[in-house]
Every structure is written in C-alpha cells, then in structure tokens.
C-alpha cells in the first residue's frame, strides 16, 4: 500500500477506535447513572422504581420535620400538595432547608415506601425553586383548574 494511504488508514483506524471506546464507555456509564425525577404523586401511585437511585422533589411539608435525638438522622415529608412522601436522611441539611420550602432529594425508595436520601438540595435563594418542583407543582395547579399554562418557567 502507498505509505501515505497506509498512514491515513492508521490515523482513521485510531480515530475510529478512540471514538468507539468513548461511545461505549459513555453509553455504559449513562445507563448506570441516569437519575430520573419523580414527584410525590408519581411515587405514591407506585410509578417510581424501588431501590433504584432516583430524584424526588417537592415542598417540605410544614410541621413534618422530626429529628432523632442522638444522631443526625432527620425525617420529613415532601409534598406536591396532592400526595406526600416520607423522606429519611442522615447528614447535614443545606442552609436553606426549611419547612414550606422546595427541595430535591437524591436517593432510593425502600420497600416500605420511604425515600432514603443520600443527598438533599435546597434552593439557592428566595426566588429560586428547583425547576422540576416548580413544574410539578404547576402541573397540579393546572390539572385542578384546567388552565392551559404548562410551558414557560416564570415561577422561578
């Protein structure tokens, strides 16, 4: 084969191999690490998978935060004003965590329907609400009042 062609072929083969490896790794890792979002209504209806890492979010129900006396364990309920889900978390809650505020929790749903979180995220400031939470709350309001407003994100 002509040396130039040969060289080009090597380069192309290298590129193809590199891309193949990258694509393979990416799809593999993606399949493992995608965290889908569910709102409390979906979880209560049993749509969310058990023991798979998912994200859940809504408002922290007023008066639902209970701390264990001798550890950092805390239990609270997250609501979308339609259904609510108990969340269990052990660790440090973000500064802006408070009853009546929006949160997103990352974790797994256990057999008894409790959401065991390994990470809890709260809003960054008073105007911010996690977009998923805003949308899911809006969806409920829209569902109840049959308003046509489903797009846009003016609430946060």
């Amino acid at each position: 084969m002509h040396p130039l062609r040969k060289k080009r072929l090597t380069i192309v083969l290298f590129l193809v191999a590199g891309i193949a490896i990258a694509v393979g790794l990416t799809t593999y890792a993606l399949r493992q690490n995608i965290n889908l979002f569910y709102d409390p209504t979906q979880i209560a209806a049993g749509e969310a998978p058990v023991d798979v890492r998912i994200r859940a979010g809504g408002m922290v129900e007023a008066g639902s935060v209970v701390r264990e006396p001798n550890s950092l364990k805390v239990i609270f309920r997250v609501t979308d004003f339609n259904e609510s889900v108990p969340v269990e978390y052990e660790g440090i809650l973000p500064d802006l965590f408070a009853e009546g505020q929006g949160v997103v929790a990352m974790g797994r749903l256990n057999d008894s329907g409790r959401f065991v979180a390994d990470q809890v995220l709260a809003k960054h400031d008073e105007n911010y609400m996690p977009p998923e939470v805003a949308d899911s709350l809006k969806k409920d309001v829209a569902g109840q009042s049959s308003s046509a407003e489903t797009t846009g994100s003016a609430t946060y």
């Binding site: 995608i34 889908l36 994200r55 949308d135």
Partner: peptide
C-alpha cells in the same frame, strides 16, 4: 453528560440528571 439532560428536558422527554458517578467512571 452536560447537554443530554438539557436536551431531553427541552424536548419534554423527561427530566433526569447525570451525576458524579457518570463523570468519575468515564
């Protein structure tokens, strides 16, 4: 990893997040 969730969200195909494990392992 950065754009995939944004694109899906924009196309209204679902909301998901891709976290640290994805990036760490790849």
């Amino acid at each position: 990893g950065t754009l995939y969730p944004l694109v899906l969200d924009y196309l209204e195909l679902g909301k998901l997040s891709i976290g640290e494990p994805f990036f760490n392992s790849t």
